[in-house]
Nucleic acid binder design. Structure first.
Lengths: 204, 204
DNA sequence: GTCTATATCATGATAGAC
DNA sequence: GTCTATCATGATATAGAC
């Protein structure tokens, strides 16, 4: 995205990303994207035939940021606790760099989930192997017994939700103090890791 | 909402709630609301001058479902652990009855948070007293020390996020098996309470 | 209070000149 | 490839009859 190649297509994609992320698929206006890209509406339709196709190009680009990183960690040889720590670190790091992602993805997902489903299938993501790893760690007595789906939901929830609900946190928890909010996000990885480990690791 | 009073205004509110929740503020069409209420578009403008006003009536009605219940628990005399358990139970109970709320609220919040802010101010919700309660329990050695904002974020995240991300859970964790997903939601309160208590309670 | 008809406007999309 | 001009559609909003 940061390439110096300022071709018309690159300018459109950059402008479209900004507008779609800020306004969502339905709120975004082709006119606004054109203005932001410094061109006119007709050119948008020349490069991307419809608004829907332009949106899909942006949306899948954003979703693809998250998946591969997680997959690599899951498929490594580390212990389950170490994997959880790495995933939390990777997630929070990504979210601090792109804090708009959760709100955007949730919004468009509730509007039309089919785009995500196609991507999940395409990546060949297999949750069963993750469930198995968790079950085996439970069998070995390393962590407390619970349905893997609940454990995964808990971890992902704590990582993602505070970014999706940023306006609430900002106003209710931090009285619109931006530096306090930023500090909070920078502490999240450490806090979540400690919280999860206390919750699931069985003390000997 | 369930009153037998089927005046035009009631019919509009009911129809608008369905359409707004399904499509959001921007996706909702006045024509669709009119059809659903069995009237014509012009009457919508007669009862609620603009789409914005109609939306606000629906949105604040939904937000108001959540706040008072939580406030009552917070202001009670129970121990901090007991309050957490009660809040989780109350939250999950509400969300199982109205699973659409999180997605809807997050979507509209990222679009325009001013409506929520007005309501928070109106309810006189004071987070500082909650922070103080948590700090005092830490001083007494009842629970592990951490910033109250993180503890609250963790609890609310685990309650709310799985409902906001329902399409992801359904597809990735439960392969579109609706009964498994329903069972999962029914287990959430128990799982979250156990998880949080293991994470924060200091064993003697 | 309720409705029909219509004015007004914004948007996504296209045709055709250069 | 890029532009200007324009279309077709659908949405909000209002005027005014009953």
């Amino acid at each position: 995205m940061e390439t110096k190649k300022d071709s018309t297509e690159e300018k459109i994609l950059e402008a479209a990303k900004n507008v779609f992320v800020a306004k969502g698929m339905e709120g975004a206006r082709m006119q606004e994207i054109a203005d932001e890209a410094g061109i006119n509406k007709a050119l948008l339709h020349y490069y991307f035939r419809t608004k829907e196709r332009l949106f899909e190009a942006i949306f899948s680009g954003i979703i693809k940021l998250a998946f591969p990183k997680i997959m690599t960690i899951v498929q490594s040889e580390a212990s389950i606790v170490s994997k959880i720590e790495q995933i939390v670190d990777a997630y929070i790091d990504l979210l601090i760099k792109h804090p708009f992602i959760p709100g955007f993805v949730l919004k468009e997902l509730n509007r039309d989930p089919s785009g995500l489903f196609k991507l999940v299938v395409k990546f060949g993501l297999n949750p069963q192997s993750v469930f198995d790893q968790i079950e085996q760690a439970m069998d070995r007595g390393e962590i407390r017994r619970m349905k893997p789906q609940h454990l995964l939901s808990n971890i992902v929830s704590m990582c993602v939700f505070p970014f999706a609900a940023r306006p609430i946190l900002s106003f209710i928890l931090f009285k619109d103090d931006p530096s306090a909010l930023e500090a909070f996000y920078n502490e999240r990885a450490t806090v979540i890791k400690e919280f999860v480990i206390n919750a699931i690791v069985i003390k000997k």
